[in-house]
Design a protein around this nucleic acid. Structure first.
Lengths: 110, 110
DNA sequence: GCTACATATCACCATATGCCGATATGTTTA
DNA sequence: TAAACATATCGGCATATGGTGATATGTAGC
């Protein structure tokens, strides 16, 4: 029960734990885009992007539909953006603390 | 620049993308606890838990201090709990959609 | 100083992940 | 039907990850 919720959480977080996939989600934003639009900006093989997209799909981050010969992806639940904003807040906290530490270090040297 | 923020985000999310680590974070809650308290409930080798804790530390999720022969860990930024609540919301959405789909499937069978 | 305790680290194994090029599948268009 | 296009899937490689038991490091107590 509770076990499976934890697993879902881990799956969602795992899907978002890769820089390329994070950027794919950002790139999608609120739009629906086909793979042929998503591939070029990332400079990775089409097969690589396809696997990332499938992983995001399996984790329920994106949904997809096919239209003719293309497959269109879109972010399924806008909550993911709230989540990313939350992570950003944490990341910024940490980076600014790092900077503070660096400055203190520098000050102590000179 | 922007690259390194994305990497930080990925690092934070990666640290939280494992069920054991998620449960360690939950277990810590707002408290400060030593490794000797954390290990038993998880039924994993001490070395395994130690590695998980170190990974959480590297990602800036927890902080640690030593007191005598023990090392005490605590969640460093309470924002992590907001983040987890956000993930929960998503996970619940997805699980409930799964259930809905199952019910529709069952209904169509009988 | 020796012993027991608490924790981190090491060496190792098995599996997962990210990446690629090549190929299979399916759809449109000529 | 053939050719072109869009995407997914396969096989393979290198590296990362999670797990373990054994060992190193450091502190507390006797």
């Amino acid at each position: 029960m509770s076990r499976s919720v934890t697993d879902w959480r881990a799956k969602i977080l795992g899907a978002l734990s890769d820089p390329t996939r994070l950027e794919i989600v950002e790139f999608l934003g609120g739009e629906e885009r086909c793979v042929c639009e998503i591939v070029p900006p990332f400079g990775r093989a089409q097969s690589t992007i396809s696997k990332h997209l499938n992983l995001l799909f399996e984790a329920g981050i994106v949904e997809r539909r096919t239209d003719g010969k293309r497959t269109l992806y879109r972010v399924r639940n806008p909550k993911v953006f709230d989540l990313l904003r939350e992570v950003d807040a944490m990341a910024l906290d940490q980076i600014s603390e790092l900077k503070k530490a660096e400055e203190m270090l520098e000050a102590s040297i000179r």
